[in-house]
Design a protein around this nucleic acid. Structure first.
Lengths: 305, 305
DNA sequence: CGGCCTGTTGCATTTTTTGCACCGCGTTGG
DNA sequence: CCAACGCGGTGCAAAAAATGCAACAGGCCG
């Protein structure tokens, strides 16, 4: 939409922190950009940027306007999707911010199912930790968030939630593999590999360990759950992950078991969106599919247990 | 905002039903307008109008887009209001759709109170019946609605409600003036003046009369409550009105008494807005003031009775 | 059929936007 | 301490976009 160009320029300036840099990014002369910004500010009735020596920065008015623009642009996309629906074929784009655990099995399968029914719909999958995911929603960068143990913010609206235990991942020949019930203290006695504090799994572990006057002291600390899963095969250490990100490999080399709920209570895997926002049709439908799939997943697990 | 001009043109075309008429309204040539519309349709990816012989009409896609525009324009105004707040002085505009009963006393007083505190805020007061008022909200033509007995629609969100009896308005020398309790059947035996069916008062009267196998048969039927109040002075007939629109005149010529609640149950005077909409600051604050004033008004009446 | 209204298009004109060169200013670094 | 650098802002001419005017094609009505 050409008429939104000014807003895109404002956004670029805000991002670059400098008119000249933004001008280069947007393939424009600094002077042209400068005049558009000044012109808009005059028309709008207020300055949008603080002019600092060395660049510019959004002032509160600019923040407000930029937020309005993002909300509006997102709503326009929704309308375009609805119109595309009207004309027959289903097009659109779904952007989702999610935790790492969803990457190996759950999300790829769900996206494939959706795209089989609606080939015109494209996807963006952004891997974000629980704090980033909600900012992602607030800035309209993602339509949906599927996150383990998010830090609840006011703007976060829960669509669906399922509990997830924290599981121990280990080699089949690990001493703990034969235990009926795995206690946290047993895990901490063996070498273990854990995610960093940014992740919900670690948060639950730390909390539970402190309660038992113990401490999580990983031999390897990482931001990658994929690394955790592979590392335990080498050192025969323990890893931690939520079950939705786990699947017993065919060769039986790896196995996983929940930590006793007496020690570590289950966390929540939560599907959410920005509060009060009307999602584009494609995203709204995908959200419904995810909610159903999560529900089915939970029912299946309960019936096994 | 100059960049919204295309949308304003689209709205004008939709309103006029013809590009040439709209072009005249907007001080443009038909050719220029035509090209802007066609250009936008191409950019948008869908036609907005059905081309009929004799003019154009919005198609569903156009309806959707126009609704998006109105919502967006209203949100932009909200942002401008917030920015004005930021820079110190409170500016803004409040538009309210209301029933006639609010015109003589309640609304003028409330607006004056608000403007005394915030001289920068201007007002639009649109008199609408209970059906129109909600369409007024849905098209973003009014921020607030204050209506007696509205027909609830899905898009209507109640901010505050107070009950209002249906009162009889009469001259002090009317035979019913001395009665302790006024029954509906007594009223219907005397010549009476009533509003048309569009109004909540009449709706309640009709309903109550049917229940008693009677019928409202006014000697004068009108859309103006002001006329009702003045007419009863001449013929010495009975009029009907809700108490918030009534005040005993100094000369004591006119008086009013509620109809027994056994016959006509009280209706609701309801302050509402469009569901889910974030109101501009000025409107939101005025709504809060109105809600408080309505509450106080109700408390004051209850303490008298 | 002819008048009348509709949306649409080619072309000249006007208005707006852009690019280039330059200014003034504050920070930075030799 | 002064020169170099990067910043936002401005005057002016060129480029681009929007507009007005006139004319065209097509449906409707008397």
């Amino acid at each position: 939409m050409r008429y939104l160009q000014t807003f895109r320029l404002i956004e670029a300036v805000a991002r670059a922190g400098s008119m000249r840099k933004a001008a280069e990014d947007m393939n424009l002369t600094a002077s042209a950009l400068n005049r558009r910004i000044n012109g808009f500010e005059e028309e709008f009735g207020a300055e949008l940027f603080e002019r600092l020596p060395g660049g510019v920065r959004l002032n509160p008015a600019g923040e407000l306007l930029l937020h309005h623009y993002r909300a509006m642009a997102s709503d326009l996309e929704r309308v375009q999707g609805q119109v595309a629906d009207l004309t027959g074929e289903r097009r659109g784009h779904v952007s989702i911010a999610c935790s790492q655990a969803l990457l190996p099995y759950f999300l790829p399968e769900q996206i494939a199912i959706y795209r089989a029914a609606h080939p015109g719909v494209t996807f963006s999958v952004n891997v974000r930790d629980r704090a980033q995911a909600e900012q992602e929603l607030a800035s309209y960068s993602s339509d949906l968030a599927l996150v383990f143990e998010p830090i609840y913010l006011v703007d976060f609206e829960v669509i669906h939630a399922i509990p997830q235990t924290v599981d121990v991942v280990m080699r089949s020949d690990h001493p703990l593999a034969s235990r009926d019930e795995i206690r946290l203290r047993d895990c901490l006695d063996y070498p273990h590999v854990a995610p960093t504090h940014r992740f919900g799994v670690r948060h639950l572990l730390d909390f539970a360990a402190r309660r038992g006057s113990r401490q999580v002291s990983p031999v390897v600390e990482t931001e990658s759950f994929e690394l955790i899963r592979h590392y335990v095969l080498h050192e025969n250490a323990l890893g931690f992950q939520i079950p939705i990100g786990l699947k017993i490999p065919n060769d039986g080399s790896l196995m996983f078991r929940p930590i006793s709920e007496r020690d570590v209570p289950p966390g929540n895997l939560i599907l959410g969106q920005l509060r009060g926002r009307t999602l584009p049709v494609a995203s709204a439908r995908f959200a419904m599919q995810l909610a159903t799939a999560l529900k089915d997943y939970q029912l299946a697990r309960e019936s096994i247990v």
